[in-house]
Amino acid sequence: MIEIPSDLHKDVVSLAFLLGTWEGAGVYAPLPGQDSPGTEKCNFGQEIVFRHDGRPFIEYRSRSWVLDSSGERIRPLENEHGFWRVTTNQHGASGEREVEVSMVRDDGTVEIWYGRLADGKPQIDLATDAVARVEGSAPYSGGKRLYGFVKEELLWVGEKAAPEVPLRPYMSAQLKKVLSPAQLIKDINDLPDDGIAFFR
């Protein structure tokens, strides 16, 4: 079930399904020639936070870690921070709404992404429009991402390209929403007064 906070800005209501803290795991496979010791194909854990403060954007933060075979964190993998907006499409049909994302990554990459919401379902397709890199970051020329809310989970897959490497999948994850303390308190308040009746 998708809840829409009463103080969410009307411009980003269509992104309400993203809101919250999400945790889970996925698979990482670096582009050929871009793996280094410790960053070969691996499983990773991830925490994504989408939050809002009433303004017409949603803040996005992602942290991920390399996991060992038992699911324990070994080392950080990559971090991202960005802002998601819903705007009027200047490139396509008149009045069409699109998703616009500005993002910075811990490897010194800055990206501008554009995409659109799928008709009738909580799914977003994004593609890079601009990429800037600091000297020393891995070669990277663009990417695509797909985010979807499926059976109460947030699923996503990312594709990446480099000057010598065509677009290919490199990261995907399956995440579950973490309940906030406020939601836990609300659930407790819904229990019968004596608490015991819950078990009868």
Rank of each mutant, 00 (worst) to 15 (best):
A93L: 13
A93V: 12
A93I: 11
S94R: 14
S94K: 11
S94E: 15
G95H: 01
G95C: 01
E96W: 07
E96L: 06
E96P: 03
R97I: 02
E98C: 08
E98F: 05
E98S: 06
V99C: 05
V99L: 05
V99Q: 03
E100H: 11
V101L: 12
S102W: 05
M103S: 13
R105H: 09
R105M: 11
D106W: 14
D106M: 05
D107M: 10
D107F: 07
G108K: 15
T109S: 10
T109I: 15
T109H: 07
T109W: 10
E111N: 14
I112L: 15
W113S: 05
W113A: 02
W113K: 13
Y114S: 08
Y114K: 12
Y114Q: 14
G115I: 03
G115P: 02
G115F: 01
R116H: 12
L117I: 02
L117E: 00
A118R: 09
D119V: 10
D119L: 08
G120H: 03
G120F: 03
G120L: 02
G120Q: 05
K121R: 15
K121D: 01
P122N: 06
I124Y: 02
I124E: 00
D125P: 05
L126Y: 04
L126I: 02
A127Q: 14
A127G: 10
A127N: 10
A127L: 05
A127M: 11
T128P: 07
D129L: 01
D129V: 07
D129I: 08
A130F: 08
A130E: 15
V131P: 07
V131C: 05
V131H: 03
A132T: 12
A132P: 04
R133Y: 10
R133H: 13
V134W: 04
E135W: 09
E135V: 12
S137G: 12
S137Y: 11
A138F: 10
A138L: 13
A138N: 12
S141F: 09
G142E: 09
G143S: 12
K144H: 06
K144Y: 07
K144G: 02
R145V: 05
R145Q: 13
Y147R: 12
Y147T: 03
Y147H: 11
G148M: 10
G148P: 06
G148T: 15
G148D: 15
V150S: 04
V150K: 14
K151G: 06
L154A: 01
L154N: 09
L154M: 14
